[in-house]
Computed example of a mutant assay.
Amino acid sequence: MSWDAEFTEHFDRCADSMRFTAYLLCGNHHEAEDVVQTAFLKLYLAGPKLVRREGLEPYLRRIVVRTFIAERRRVRWRRELLRDELPEQPEVAVLSEDKLVVWDALQSVPAKQRAVLVLRYWHDLGVEETAAALRCSVGTVKSNTNRGLKALRRRLGPAFAELWQEVSRGA
């Protein structure tokens, strides 16, 4: 099978999942779409050089997360954008109020901590898998998880435990 056909098949299978991951990281659809397009472009360009092509989905997820983090480092002034109209609502079929509250709070967590929380709790990756996806140590994943959860606790207050369990269980 040619790389173009293989890439198209992979895109069809993974695009929605990658958009959702990017949306969780970015907090808006437009930025998420840019991150996913950049990630798929990087995958497409790297594809012919890849020796092993099984396991492309975790590789692509790592590209999405690293692209998001790199973009946040590069353009720090984009953290707060003032707009004339309200932001779009997520295009997820049914969103509980709890998910909206947690997603809003997740946007206040620093980018690396947010990436760790998304990979660990929404994608249900273990500490080692998350470390591999982010190319960092297990200790870094653990400390970023701890700091991210503390930031969410501060933002969500006493209802944190109940909200977090509801959202991470039903993701």
Rank of each mutant, 00 (worst) to 15 (best):
E71V: 05
R13C: 10
H123N: 11
E6V: 02
T145Y: 02
V167R: 01
D84C: 13
V127G: 01
M1W: 05
D124C: 08
R153N: 01
L25K: 08
F7I: 04
E91Y: 14
G157L: 05
R83K: 05
F7E: 06
F40S: 03
I63P: 07
T21N: 02
E97L: 15
R114C: 06
S17E: 12
L106N: 04
D84V: 13
R153H: 05
L45H: 01
F40W: 07
E88D: 12
D104V: 00
L45A: 06
V118R: 02
Q89W: 03
E91Q: 13
A15C: 03
V102D: 05
L125W: 03
T8V: 07
L106S: 08
P87E: 09
L45R: 10
A39M: 07
R78C: 02
M18K: 00
F20P: 00
V141S: 11
P110H: 12
V141Q: 12
Y59R: 00
V101T: 05
W103Y: 08
N28G: 10
R154E: 10
L119M: 11
D12K: 15
T130P: 12
G47W: 01
K142M: 11
E91M: 14
P48G: 04
A159S: 09
E80P: 04
R62W: 07
H123W: 11
R19L: 14
A93E: 11
S96A: 15
L25Y: 04
V64G: 03
A93V: 15
A132H: 05
A105P: 08
E88L: 14
A111S: 15
E128M: 12
S96P: 12
L81K: 12
I69F: 09
C26W: 08
H29V: 10
G157D: 05
L106A: 10
D34N: 08
R120V: 15
R147V: 13
T21A: 05
R72M: 12
P48E: 07
L149N: 07
E129F: 02
L56P: 00
L125M: 08
E166A: 13
L81A: 09
R61T: 12
S137Y: 10
L82G: 00
G126T: 13
C26G: 06
P87F: 09
L119I: 06
V94A: 15
V94D: 13
E54P: 01
L50F: 01
V36D: 07
S143M: 14
Q113M: 11
R154Q: 13
A22G: 01
E166D: 09
L50H: 03
L56F: 01
Q37F: 03
D84S: 09
Y59G: 00
D16S: 03
